[in-house]
């Protein structure tokens, strides 16, 4: 289950999307997220879904792999959809029993929200799956660098994000091991009682925190040994340059907006 989460994972493949400049991809994702919540209407979503499918195809990430990443959020999607389904007031009642009333508007709203969340996760997944975390944070560092002028410590922030990403798999493995070790000592993580269930987390969380602090400590010393100084300037191993692909991506964004506007006007 824990291993199914694909957000933050990198999937290596020789695709044009992988080779694109991270800044382009970050801006594209941002743009995609905004569009997702601004647009209305069935045909607009068809265009977005089609465009997402095109990008997935270009990125050479197996669809199965993408879908597996959605597993952990199924519950979230179901809850959101259910809330919208029952809470939305409307005139076209399709079903009514006791306090439960389902309206056509509710069905529409529920579907819209479910699609939005799924597309949102897929969209951000494409960014992280095609961009190594270091490149991603490197791209962010450049995009956010204007903030350095007003004293925001962007480099330190980017280093922190990079390290967090680096340690996610390590800590997930560790969590898995601790859960198994405590299960073997008879800990019960499947109790129905929510209070007991939360209490059962303590034997997992404490060792995990202790371990994370120990690792942080070790890492800090190791970084110091390699001459890291948060206040000093650093050179960069990576160099980013906009290329043809980035230009195409920009063109595509423009076309994308035009199509959506046309749909809005025509339909």
């Amino acid at each position: 289950m824990i291993r199914d989460i694909t957000i933050g994972q990198y999937y290596d493949a020789p695709s044009p999307i992988h080779k694109m400049d991270p800044r382009t991809k970050i801006l594209w994702t941002l743009f995609y997220m905004i569009t997702l919540f601004v647009v209305e209407g069935f045909w607009s979503y068809v265009v977005i879904v089609a465009s997402t499918a095109l990008i997935i195809a270009l990125s050479k990430i197996p669809v199965k792999f993408m879908l597996r990443g959605l597993k952990p959020i199924i519950l979230l999607v179901v809850i959101t959809a259910a809330l919208n389904l029952f809470m939305t007031q409307g005139e076209n009642v399709i079903f009514s029993k006791g306090i439960f009333t389902i309206t056509l508007e509710g069905v529409y709203m529920a579907a819209k929200m479910a699609v939005r969340i799924i597309l949102l996760i897929i969209g951000t997944s494409i960014l992280t799956l095609t961009t190594t975390p270091t490149v991603l944070t490197g791209g962010l560092e450049i995009l956010l660098s204007p903030l350095k002028k007003i004293g925001v410590p962007i480099s330190v922030f980017v280093m922190m994000v990079g390290i967090a990403l680096r340690f996610i798999p390590t800590l997930l493995d560790e969590t898995d091991k601790i859960i198994k070790a405590q299960t073997s000592r008879g800990a019960d993580f499947e109790n129905k009682n929510p209070v007991k269930r939360i209490k059962a987390m303590i034997p997992i969380l404490i060792p995990l925190f202790v371990s994370a602090f120990r690792r942080a400590d070790d890492l800090a010393v190791a970084m110091e040994c390699r001459c890291y100084n948060a206040d000093a300037d650093r050179s960069s191993y990576r160099r980013f340059a906009f290329g043809k692909r980035d230009f195409y991506a920009l063109m595509y964004a423009v076309i994308f907006v035009i199509i959506l506007v046309v749909i809005k006007v025509v339909l």
């Binding site: 091991k177 601790i178 070790a181 303590i202 034997p203 404490i206 060792p207 202790v210």
Partner: peptide, 10 residues
């Protein structure tokens, strides 16, 4: 007893 079992003390 897992490897480095001291990491499970809490």
């Amino acid at each position: 007893v897992f490897q480095y079992p001291e990491h499970q003390l809490f």
